[in-house]
Design a protein around this nucleic acid. Structure first.
Lengths: 400, 400
DNA sequence: GACAACTGTCTAAGCGCTTACATCTACTGT
DNA sequence: ACAGTAGATGTAAGCGCTTAGACAGTTGTC
């Protein structure tokens, strides 16, 4: 039976390659007149091969255009060198497109990819609609194809996350802790929201607020709101006029403010704080529909620093999350854990940064003429300390 | 030696799983008291297994939480069920972020993923900086990890694409044909640009243009420009005042228009046509800096329909590419080719769609008051026929 | 009762690598 | 001259799965 095997070493045409020119390690070995072990050693360098042999083998590899089969390597090495990333999909529908935190997930993705690329690992991607009932199933079967998994908060429940983490190392991005088995990398929503609220209260002297909350299931929304409320509570003279809840979408922000405007008796706040930028965009649209100017009649702020924020009129004051770093750190942490699954789990909080633009009432002078000039990205001004400091500790930024 | 092998079937603890609870097909077989073949058949259904056995095996699988190893399956099936997607990276730097066609690539990605997900295949992602010298190397080694590759135009040269296609099926997205071996899926830039230009000439009666071209290496830019020029050439009374070349970035658009404004003698066109939206944004910024209103003083149009386009002031008239469909079609085509590499290569052109907003001079009435009201996405108006018609044939849209 | 035709299950080869171990040379020191 | 050592290379097991082919048991046919 070994004889047959040996014969197979000498075969070249593999019928299933269907005209594609694919060669194996055996082909290289045969052509170079060495054993497969030697070819493998040449390929990986980490073993002594004589210079002559190495040269000969390299030449054959070059000539055949040999590329090692990833599946075979994974199987043999007992390591796939692949990380899976599962995040929320956006639908193809343009409305839903705006509504989801689309740019956020894509930025995280780029961060992860860059980290992996540097280590020569690969990235396997999958998206799930929010609340997709088959999400867990998909994640679970994905665990057989990767060495570790990066999962966005909100894809699957806590209990399922724990089950998953028993099979494969898991890092949760932008979420909260789930049991002792998963790592978490998230942004300092609390500090960001605190800085933003203090900016409004202490610098602009705003005394009455409307708050547009995010979905109750989102830990992010929770933290942002609780920070907001804590600042309000510290200032006796400041009042939270009313609150509404949105879904993080532009449309829901618009509706929230429409509803607020229709309230009887009408109670106009001095500022509207939205749990994310999309809703802030919706809020501004709604206000514009009622001929209310931002920030003259009412200030509006968001959270996230999505791409179009600086192009808006007025440019949106918001809090920047280190989105790409979130991906980078999550990935780095995951790789550590893959190397030692026994590592104690940690929760890593990256600093956020207050971006003061115009919609809060700041701006050059008393706010210049309206118009396209507003579209410049130059309005961005960094308020918190140095950006992207190496430290990953929460940085409580002073409010102004 | 076979005896050793048999013994190994009975082993359960695999030292290298390091505390992660991973079980193999053999574990299942042993616990269920059947052979691995039977477990495999139960898993895949496509073979007759008695109801009793099936139930017993399923229970064991459930109990162990067994997930098949992807690498082993790939190796054994001689098919990885993985597609690779390589597109252009954006840097982390926010300036560069704006400059690249970031949203475009991400949209394509989502289209590809959705198609793959439906078939239970996986998606391997990699990004390359534009002009990355190691791009080919990375693509080449990726070919050992996937069954097919989707590559953005501009990542590697034509000759390298051909070499790649000899190893693994390749589909090029948003590009032009490269030899007989790769498929191409692209958008109908020519028709889109024609419709846009005709809209300006025939509806708005514009008689003088400035054109901001894209990089000369981009086939997209070429097509857009040639369509533009052909329309101009058909109208004797219309003049192309001047032309400049940008890099598709916001900044380059701004610079192009700054340069145009500084020209001596000053020659102000009635409209500025930009080869993409980013440059159009830059153009509008530059004009605003010189107190020139869009579209009152000069009309500006772009191409691509990037996300912020509808949020701008004024909302940007542009041409929509079916970005997500581009990904979907590329993927579908690739899967066909994976199943039959001998298929003749095709070039598939998806229809584009003129989106008339405000920056061309359209808009409700004679353009309402400036201000946040402009941010509404409602300004979008579809001019060409029904959107997303099933047909993939170029659709030459009438200019108005 | 012999034989064919199923049916359900098992055996074991093989997918293309990596790598522990065995082997073979060529030196070195005594 | 010979054991000892180190360097270069070969051998073959094994990674976890799929599946062709073997095999035993059951039914149906004449």
């Amino acid at each position: 039976m070994r004889l047959e095997s040996k014969e197979s070493w000498l075969r070249l045409g593999r019928p299933w390659t269907w005209g594609l020119d694919v060669s194996t390690l055996y082909d290289c070995a045969r052509l170079a007149g060495v054993s497969t072990a030697t070819v493998s050693r040449v390929l990986h360098g980490h073993d002594r091969v004589s210079a002559t042999t190495r040269a000969r083998v390299l030449e054959v590899i070059q000539q055949l255009g040999y590329v090692p089969d990833g599946a075979a390597q994974s199987l043999s090495r007992r390591r796939k060198q692949v990380i899976g990333l599962v995040s929320v999909d956006r639908a193809s529908d343009p409305i839903a497109l705006e509504s989801s935190s689309l740019l956020f997930a894509d930025e995280v993705l780029h961060g992860v990819e860059a980290t992996l690329r540097a280590k020569d690992w690969s990235l396997l991607i999958s998206f799930c609609g929010e609340g997709d009932p088959r999400a867990f199933e998909r994640l679970y079967s994905m665990s057989g194809k990767v060495d570790g998994l990066i999962v966005s908060e909100g894809i699957v429940g806590s209990e399922q996350l724990v089950r998953l983490a028993a099979k494969v190392p898991v890092v949760v991005v932008a979420g909260s802790r789930h049991g002792a088995s998963t790592d978490v990398v998230t942004a300092d929503n609390y500090a960001g929201s605190t800085a933003l609220t203090r900016h409004l209260v202490e610098l602009h002297g705003i005394r009455s607020f409307h708050y547009v909350d995010g979905p109750s299931s989102a830990p992010n929304a929770l933290e942002r709101r609780s920070a907001f409320e804590n600042v309000i509570a510290k200032h006796k003279e400041v009042e939270l006029v009313s609150t509404s809840r949105g879904t993080f979408s532009v449309e829901s922000g618009r509706r929230a403010v429409e509803a607020m405007l229709k309230e009887q008796p009408p109670r106009m706040p001095e500022a509207i704080v939205c749990a994310n930028d999309h809703m802030a965009i919706g809020a501004i649209q709604a206000l514009a529909g009622h001929a209310l100017a931002v920030p003259e009649d009412v200030a509006v702020v968001g959270f996230d620093d999505i791409y179009p924020g600086s192009l808006l009129d007025p440019p949106l004051t918001t809090v920047r999350q280190p989105t790409r770093s979130l991906g980078e750190r999550a990935c780095a942490r995951l790789l550590e854990r893959v190397n030692d699954p026994a590592l104690p789990s940690v929760i890593e909080v990256l600093p956020t940064e207050l971006l003061v633009r115009v919609s809060c009432g700041c701006g050059e002078g008393t706010r210049g003429a309206r118009g396209p000039a507003r579209m410049s990205a130059q309005h961005r001004r960094t308020v918190s300390g140095s950006r992207r400091s190496g430290s990953s500790k929460p940085r409580r930024t002073a409010g102004s």
